[in-house]
Amino acid sequence: MADDLETAGQTRADEVRAFIARTPLAQEMGLKCEVMGDEMTMIMPYQEKLIGNFMIKAIHGGAIGAFLELTSQAQVFLVTEHLPRPPRPINLTIDYLRQGHAKDLYARAEITKMGRRMCSVRAEAWQDERSKPVTTLMAHFMVSGD
């Protein structure tokens, strides 16, 4: 029993890592993930190319948005068995709360509701303090194949 659970956990963590490894945009952005059971933290190590405003050295809001969208997709992979395709976004809202400074970003996503065809996800990104999020995201994804 314990073995089965561990194997299932391993498999899903592997699925998430495989998703990151085979998605060109995730590779381009240098994403890494740390999976702990059904929880996952995504990391976007700072790179100069992610800058949106060179005068204030702020990370591009669109890059942070993409980071949160990829984190949400990965979280769906983590909690869903045998997902044939990456979840397709229907819509999303991004709140830019603080400036993203020129350093690593972390993000976590939470599935608010998992349906048969769609799911609702919330995600947030932070830098120094988890309690001071840089950006938050709320999104809907299609999870079924059609």
């Binding site: 669109g62 993409a66 990829l70 976004p89």
Partner: peptide
Amino acid sequence: IHGGVLTAFLDN
């Protein structure tokens, strides 16, 4: 192309 690219595009 990833949806996140459109986010950055339309944000710009």
